[in-house]
Nucleic acid binder design. Sequence first.
DNA 1: TAGATTGTTAATCGATTAACAATC
DNA 2: TAGATTGTTAATCGATTAACAATC
Lengths: 216, 216
Amino acid sequence: MQETSSQTLKRLPLYLNYVKSTLNSPPDTISAASIALALGKSHIQVRKDLATVSSSGRPKIGYVKTVLVAELERYLGYDSPSSAVLVGAGRLGCALYEYQGFTDYGLNLVAAFDIDAERAQKETQKPVFPLKKLPDLCKRLGAQIGVITVPAQHAQQACDALVQAGVRAIWNFAPTHLSVPPGILVQNEDMASSLALLSKHISKNIQGGQYDEQQA
Amino acid sequence: MQETSSQTLKRLPLYLNYVKSTLNSPPDTISAASIALALGKSHIQVRKDLATVSSSGRPKIGYVKTVLVAELERYLGYDSPSSAVLVGAGRLGCALYEYQGFTDYGLNLVAAFDIDAERAQKETQKPVFPLKKLPDLCKRLGAQIGVITVPAQHAQQACDALVQAGVRAIWNFAPTHLSVPPGILVQNEDMASSLALLSKHISKNIQGGQYDEQQA
DNA sequence: TAGATTGTTAATCGATTAACAATC
DNA sequence: TAGATTGTTAATCGATTAACAATC
């Protein structure tokens, strides 16, 4: 078992997700190669990735699904969720705030803040607080992660307030760069970057004309 | 000027975004080093990235901001938007569908589809069509990109329909793997992967106790 | 001119892929 | 036993960083 690279870490949820989806069908074991095939990855990569989190693989047999699922969930911290608060309860913010699925991924969204809490409260069942309550409430809730879904021009301010209130990681949906002190992680959910890849693929294919023939 | 790697491509929107934000302040030129400083990147990386899209850099002077902005926008295809359709007009889907900002990024969301179009139509001003109209309408609109915001268990089906209707790239927000024919790009907006990084950072810091002291 | 800044070529680093020994 | 499959060590590949020559 070795240190887990960030590339590997990002793939682990995919494996977990797939193995869980096979739990109800026999057999009760699964091989790295079959995971790889289903997800369009190389079997060598899956094997190596799994080796960083699991020691339950047995030659010739593979992994017992339930054991592997438990190992992955444990490693990814899904069994001990982090509490998080959200700043900016607009359309996107509310959609994320209401989304039930995050608890499965170890994220517990316990509060949302908005500059106009009254308006925002009409959009969601869960409580929305005015922005000025953030410093106090965020500390009291012990939030470890801050989710930023405010417009770009207010994002740095929201970020500063969250860091001040003690969060140790920021999940940033605003299309702007955030500056943070050392030790704080910013994870950008960067839609513009994704769009750049999509749009380049489109224009490349127009230029080149023909699709390439490699398998997916 | 060389071939642009996908890593570089993902960073270009960040540079563009920053340079645009400085357009109103003098001087009217900007250096790679100052972009790097503002975004917390290395100046060598920024210089090399910009070299793949721009030939307007002048030693000692840097880049004329307006020229660089135009070069980046052109390269990223912001001047010739792709048309896209969205499948799954739930909370997240509607939030994306209504978001004005995508046109700035070269994406034109022209239609949305939902299995219950009537319900979804109450959530948005823009038109929502029943799923069964997808094949015909998607073709007629000439959509090049399909955005998937349906629940995981319906995502593959939505994907197949989009591919069938002629889209050449999929922007997938459903937490599941999609299989596509060769030549079709799937870009996963993978929240579970992001959460894995965030949650590992949190638990690492608890374990290790002390923050590290590198600059941001 | 001298100094700042670009663009390119070379060196380093990290991640992916390949090879293979261990083993159920 | 033989074959399938794991986990690890070595080789390759790609991306980042460093060095430096060119130049406004």
